[in-house]
Structure formats: structure tokens, C-alpha cells
Design a protein around this nucleic acid. Sequence first.
DNA 1: CCTTTTATTATGTGTGTACATATAAATATG
DNA 2: CATATTTATATGTACACACATAATAAAAGG
Lengths: 230, 230
Amino acid sequence: MNKVTHQTIRQSILERIQKGEWALGELIPGEAALAEEYGCARTTINRALQGLADEGLVVRKRKGGTRVCNMPVRQARFDIPIVREQVEAFGGHYRHQVLRKVEKVPPLSIRTRLGLEKGAKALQLDTVHLADGRPFAYEARWVNLKVVPQIRSAPFDEVSANEWLVQTVPFSSGDVSFSAVAAGKDVASALECKEGDALFVIDRTTSLAGEFVTTMKLFYREGYQLYSRL
Amino acid sequence: MNKVTHQTIRQSILERIQKGEWALGELIPGEAALAEEYGCARTTINRALQGLADEGLVVRKRKGGTRVCNMPVRQARFDIPIVREQVEAFGGHYRHQVLRKVEKVPPLSIRTRLGLEKGAKALQLDTVHLADGRPFAYEARWVNLKVVPQIRSAPFDEVSANEWLVQTVPFSSGDVSFSAVAAGKDVASALECKEGDALFVIDRTTSLAGEFVTTMKLFYREGYQLYSRL
DNA sequence: CCTTTTATTATGTGTGTACATATAAATATG
DNA sequence: CATATTTATATGTACACACATAATAAAAGG
């Protein structure tokens, strides 16, 4: 006989849902009823159900009760990777090389992304990340100098822009998108691949307290896969 | 003055972390101390910190205390989409078309993925998803007939294989991976794009109670982006 | 000095209670 | 009959308390 904890209850209810004890969208017993059934306090059931709700398996509503989610869209959690760690995780030797580092007025698309005024300069930073000497990913980045002016004197021969920013402005929020693009001329030459090759791209914009810090496109070499369990 | 709830406390602590009040990897005050500071019960602080721990912002250890995560790898949560809903979310008219539906012995790569015996047949199902009549995504799927034999008689003129499976074996687990590939001949003709175009691909394998149910590759038409806030 | 044992301590979790809040359902009102 | 108001109810949340558990630090033993 297992101990009755919010974890075991959560697992148990999950299994009952998977077995089909309650149909999609159907109401499951209330907290009070489940508490009696499992022989525990309502608080404990509440925690278990909240957990399932966080994962999107059930939907809860005051007075409405708890029901099995009728639109079971499973969520995948991805770790947005730091390239160095990716490379080293595969046992490769990591190195990076700054291809361009200039302050200049960015194109409109970048300007609006970073929320810059017309004519304001930003730092353009292009880096190639190498695994065992071979190009692994190409990073095209723009940095908002108003927010992180210290980046001008950052030692980019030691750490990559990515890592420097993670250290300096950690826990920033933002958005990511994944897509596929055909390699352009610059990217192809940096990654030593053919123009037009299908590349996996992570597009990421980072902001801190309402201010946009940096926006970046990361082009992975051909064949790269981003993997996750769900 | 805001009410003191686990939510407001959580937000407050998050901001203090972002402001850099505690360095990366540094110990933050214990629950008891914070409870006194915020003037609430320890239970409430516990909930706030647990929440931050779930999001990967802090690491907690018994006796060791709570410390700011020193490896701030932000996680992105993605909803693994159902194509119909994606199309309809953009206001498009959804329709799908089954291009192939045959039972046959799958190639080795699929066989191992589904955990089938040598010579066992599986259902091959190729579908094209259309938005306003235009190809939106191409789905190449294999289904394990041992686990879901009922699929033979599923009404695929009404619902897509994806939806049928979601309805029939909901809340299954599995894995996903994202990548970019160049469109092959079949895919190109189904999506009405050029061969070699860079396509975004979701590769998904689903299992239920240790048995593999189905594996699928979903090729999106050019330009598709998968987006998420973090 | 090193190893083993024993506190000590911060988090983890369950309980019972009380009250807050949203909302569905029932009732009163025009 | 439609609309506004009230009531009942399930979840949401805070609290005080007790004990469990893991991991570190201190003490004891060799």
C-alpha cells in the first residue's frame, strides 16, 4: 500500500484519465469527494489537481468543477540551448569566432524589434560557433547599446556574446520562434554548406523590464534536430 | 499596498532576482526569513518558491537552502499543435485529404521506432492538410495496428488521423523533435512547392503505457514558424 | 588525521480550518 | 418570457501546526 501523497494521488488520477475512466471534457469528482475516496485532506487533492491543471491535463473552474481537458494539446518543454553546452554535451571541442562586430544603424526590421529610435545605432555581432573546428551554428545578433553599453568592452575572445549576455542580464524574458530557411550566401559561407541548404533556425528576442536587449538568429548546420520528450 | 499572496510574493522575488539582488548561484534567504519579511506564513513562501523552482529559476535543496539557478537555461513551452486548430486559428478554412492508406511492412527505421517484429505490417497514412484549399502541411504517418486496430474502420473523410488518434488514445506520452529538411519529390508535389525548398518538420512518436502507437513526420509549407513566449 | 555517528537545519508535505471568489443554478422581478 | 438578483457550491488561497526527509555540520571514536 502506497503512502497517500499529493504526488501519488496525482499519478493515480492521471492513470485514471489515461485509462478513460472519464471521457474527454467530462466532469471528474469534486475535491471533497476525491478527498474522501483517497482518505486525505481536501488540500492534498487540491494540490494534485492543480498540478494536473498546470500540465494542461484538466481544466478547473470555480463552481464549474474539474473536467478532463477536451482539447488535449500536449505541451513540449524545450531548453533553449547555449551553443557551447550543446557542443560539449556531445563531447566536442567548442570554439567560436567573431566574424563581425560593428556599431551601426540597423535595418528597419531590427529597429522595430529592439524598439530603437530612428537613426540610433546598435551593435551588430556575427559569430560562428565551431565544434571540433567544424562550423556548428552561425549567430547573427543585434544588441541594444542603450540597455547594455558595457558590451562594448566585453572580452569576446573568451566568451561568446550569448554567454556574456546570459551572465550579465540573466532571467530576462522574451520570445522564440523556430523555423526552416534556405541558407543564404553569408550563412552558407560561414557554415561551409551549400547555398540553399535547409537550415534549422532559432529566432530569439530578449527583453528585460520592458526594454529590448537583443535579438538574434541562430542558424544550425544541416541535419540539426531539437529534441524533447513530452 | 498589494495583498500578500503566493503570486505577488513569487513575482516580487522574481523581480529581485532579475534586478540582481542575489548573484547567480547565490543562496537566497530561507523560507522562515522571507516569511517574516513579507509578513506571511512559511507555507505561502514555500508555494512561491516552489513555483519559481518549477520554472527553473531557483534550485532548492533540503538543508542546502534555495539558490538562484547558476545555469539560467530558459525553457520554452510549446503547444504541440493540431493542424486543424492552427489553420482555424488564422481564420482559414480547414480541409484534409488522404493521399495514401495502405497496410504494409514498414521500412526498418519505422519498424524499430514502433517496436514491431520483423515482417509485421503497419498502417501507412499520408495526408495533406489544406488551408483555404492551399496545401498547409503534409503528414507522413505510420500506425501500430496491434495497439489501435480500430483505426482500420475510422472515418478519415471526416476527421484526420491526427484528430482520430487524439480522440481515441488521448494523453499518451512520447517525444518530438524539430528540424529543417529540403523538400523531397513526394513532399514537394503534395505541398505544391519546389523540390529542395526548406521545410520545417515536426517528428513525433507517441506511446501509451509502454507501447508505441504511432510515429509521424509533419512537413509544413515554406515560411512556417513555430512561436512561443518564454 | 580520518572515519563514523549524531545533531542540526531548511525544505517537503499532510491536516484541519477559515474565508475568498467565481459562477452555475435557482429565484424573484419587470 | 426575458432579465435581474440571489443563493448555493466548487475551487482558490492563507494560516498554524506537526512531522518527514535529506544533507550538512559538528561531535565522537578509532
